[in-house]
C-alpha cells in the first residue's frame, strides 16, 4: 500500500451567520495516497472549496484534524503552515492568481525564492520554455492571454516539485479547447512528477480523468 499523504479526521467547519451557526463541513474523513489524483465534486455550497482550503492549511477547522505530508496542520501556526505549503504544496486557481507586479518569469521564480532554493531563474526559465512560453518570460500578467496565464500558473505550481498540488476549478475560466489543453498538461505533470493531485471541479469530464472522485453534499462525503 502506498503512503497516505493527506488525511482528515472528523473534520468540521462551522461559521456564524445572522441565522445562527452554519455547518459547512461535517465530520469529513478522507485519505489520499501519494501520487493519487482525486476530484472533489458536488453542487454549489456543498463545501468543496472549504474542504480544499482546510486540506491546504489555508483555513483552520472548527473541529477535527488534517495531516498533510506527515505534519498535523492544526498543530501549526499560520507561519508554520505557510512554510509547509512553500516546501511541499502547489496551487492552481480558477482565476490564475498571478502577482500583477511580477513578470511571468518572476511569478514562476517566486515559490523557489520564498523557500530559498538555488538556481531559481534557470529553473523557472526552463519550466516556462517547456510550456511554450519562452517568448513570454518578461511579460506581465496583464499582457498574457487566459491560457498563457494558466500555463504560467501551472509552471509556478510545479516548479518546487510539490508533493501535493491543489487545484480549484483549474479550467473554469478557460474556453473548452484551452481548458482541455491545460487539463492534459496538469495530468501529464501529475504523472511526470508523481505529484498528488487534489482538484475541485464542476466539470464531470475533468473529474472522470482522476483516479478517484469524492462527492460532497451538504458538507458531508457522499458514501
Amino acid at each position: 500500500m502506498q503512503d497516505i499523504v493527506l488525511r482528515t479526521e472528523a473534520l468540521s467547519k462551522k461559521v456564524s451567520s445572522p441565522e445562527g451557526s452554519l455547518t459547512i463541513l461535517d465530520d469529513v474523513r478522507i485519505a489520499v495516497q501519494s501520487g493519487e489524483s482525486v476530484a472533489l465534486v458536488g453542487p454549489s455550497g456543498a463545501g468543496k472549496t472549504t474542504l480544499l482550503a482546510l486540506l491546504a492549511g489555508l483555513d483552520r477547522p472548527s473541529h477535527g484534524h488534517v495531516w498533510l505530508c506527515g505534519e498535523e496542520l492544526t498543530a501549526l501556526d499560520e507561519d508554520g503552515r505557510a512554510r509547509l505549503r512553500g516546501d511541499r504544496v502547489g496551487f492552481v486557481f480558477q482565476s490564475f492568481h498571478l502577482v500583477p507586479s511580477l513578470t511571468a518569469l518572476e511569478n514562476v521564480m517566486l515559490p523557489l525564492e520564498l523557500t530559498g532554493a538555488d538556481g531559481a531563474k534557470a529553473r523557472a526559465t526552463d519550466a516556462l520554455t517547456s510550456m511554450g512560453l519562452g517568448e513570454r518570460l518578461g511579460h506581465y500578467p496583464n499582457q498574457l492571454s487566459g491560457g498563457e496565464k494558466q500555463r504560467v500558473a501551472i509552471s509556478r505550481a510545479f516548479i518546487t516539485k510539490p508533493e501535493v498540488l491543489f487545484a480549484d476549478e483549474p479550467t473554469g475560466n478557460l474556453d473548452t479547447a484551452t481548458g482541455e489543453r491545460v487539463a492534459s498538461l496538469l495530468f501529464d505533470l501529475n504523472k511526470e512528477f508523481q505529484t498528488t493531485l487534489v482538484l475541485v471541479t464542476h466539470d464531470r469530464e475533468l473529474a472522470a480523468r482522476c483516479d478517484r472522485i469524492i462527492e460532497l453534499a451538504s458538507g458531508k462525503v457522499v458514501p
Binding site: 499560520e78 507561519d79 512553500g86 496551487f91 502577482v99 520564498l114
Partner: peptide, 13 residues
Amino acid sequence: DTIALMKSLGATQ
C-alpha cells in the same frame, strides 16, 4: 488578494 496569494505560496508574516 496578492498578499493572500503570497501566503498560499509559502510567504510568512
